[in-house]
């Protein structure tokens, strides 16, 4: 009874979300729509990043690299052969790639699979030893990806990047993928695999003693999270329509790290809330970096001020409010309804 009620409520709230999006699509400004799509992409990224960092407890710094891999993989597959011929002026594109062109949905799937494969290749050496090295290897891969993309002219077009992508990404694609990612992540976290991930996070030796193959579980979490980051990369590529190797800096990873820490490491709900807050707040905080006239004082605007603020927030949250907004708890209809009932009964008295 409770299960079907919860399902009904979930479907109902999704219906409200998508009605809102339908309303937004025809009424909101281009700028607002762009922010809405960014929010969806960042939720996708944060939820999948939280899976490896918060739930499996392995410190990865790879999202910017995975975004880049996904963006390139999907862009290479959606560009039309004519466009490829036009863009690859220094070296022609490698043969099978130069003639292939697939629909957007298929390219997103390819992006996810390619990214997950890259993640597995990375995980193999790293998870054989202490998980700490994952941080450096994944961080290093972000740098190496730039090197590789700049140098393999016949696949990525080098530093010229890929231009002229069709703007396939719209409100429906970004939010559809976002909801799908959250759904898959929640299913995984609540399955026996998810429980195994949490066990590995808490105590790897104890988990292995209970018969969990820690290497496999960590690799699974890493590949799963990379898959969705790759898909998000594909979405992002077709939102901004021009990609180059230097676009996917460590800044992406840093923003995501702040999101999952503020939301509460290990809580999917927290990641979603924080992704909305930070993506929207990051836009709102732009005034810090722009010249303004404050109460008669000329304020010059300091570029980079937001990042200083964000790093201070990150350190302070880590030192004083480690559990973030949600701690490790999740949203449930049971809890929400209980809370509302409680409030109502207080009001009656």
């Amino acid at each position: 009874m409770a299960v079907s009620r919860d399902r009904l409520l979930t479907v109902f709230s999704l219906f409200i979300l998508f009605s809102f999006l339908a309303y937004a699509d025809s009424n909101f400004s281009h700028y607002t729509l762009r922010i809405l799509q960014n929010i969806a992409i960042f939720i996708t990224l944060a939820v999948s990043y939280n899976l490896i960092n918060g739930i499996a407890g392995q410190f990865s710094l790879g999202p910017n690299a995975f975004l880049a891999v996904g963006a390139y993989a999907s862009a290479i597959f959606t560009l039309s052969p004519e466009e490829k011929l036009r863009s690859f002026i220094i070296e022609p594109m490698l043969w099978p790639l130069s003639v292939i062109s697939v629909p957007f949905a298929a390219s997103l799937l390819i992006a996810g699979i390619v990214t997950a494969l890259v993640a597995i290749l990375m995980a193999m050496p790293v998870f054989r030893v202490r998980g700490d090295y994952l941080a450096i290897v994944s961080l290093g891969f972000g740098e190496v990806f730039q090197v590789l993309a700049n140098n393999s002219m016949s696949i990525t077009n080098g530093s010229l990047g890929l231009k002229g992508l069709q703007p396939y990404t719209n409100l429906w694609w970004s939010w559809g993928i976002c909801v799908f990612t959250v759904f898959c992540t929640l299913r995984l976290v609540n399955s026996s695999y998810g429980r195994a991930m949490k066990a590995v996070r808490e105590d790897e030796t104890a988990a292995e003693a209970m018969g969990i193959n820690a290497f496999r579980i960590k690799t699974l979490a890493f590949a799963f999270s990379a898959f969705f980051q790759g898909v998000a990369g594909g979405l992002l590529a077709h939102l901004i329509t021009t990609i180059s190797p230097s676009l996917f800096t460590f800044m992406f990873t840093f923003n995501l790290l702040i999101i999952i820490v503020i939301g509460g490491l290990g809580s999917t709900t927290g990641s979603i809330i924080a992704a909305v807050l930070i993506t929207w707040g990051g836009e709102a905080l732009r005034f810090f970096e722009e010249p303004a006239n404050l109460f008669g004082f000329q304020y010059e605007g300091i570029p980079g001020m937001r990042m200083v603020l964000f790093s201070v927030i990150l350190i302070l949250v880590m030192l004083f409010a480690r559990s973030g907004i949600m701690g490790r708890s999740e949203f449930s209809w049971e809890g929400a309804l209980g809370w509302i009932k409680n409030k109502l009964s207080v009001m009656k008295v």
Partner: peptide
Amino acid sequence: RINALITAIGV
């Protein structure tokens, strides 16, 4: 350990 790593990134 992961908390210390995150703090280190922040610093």
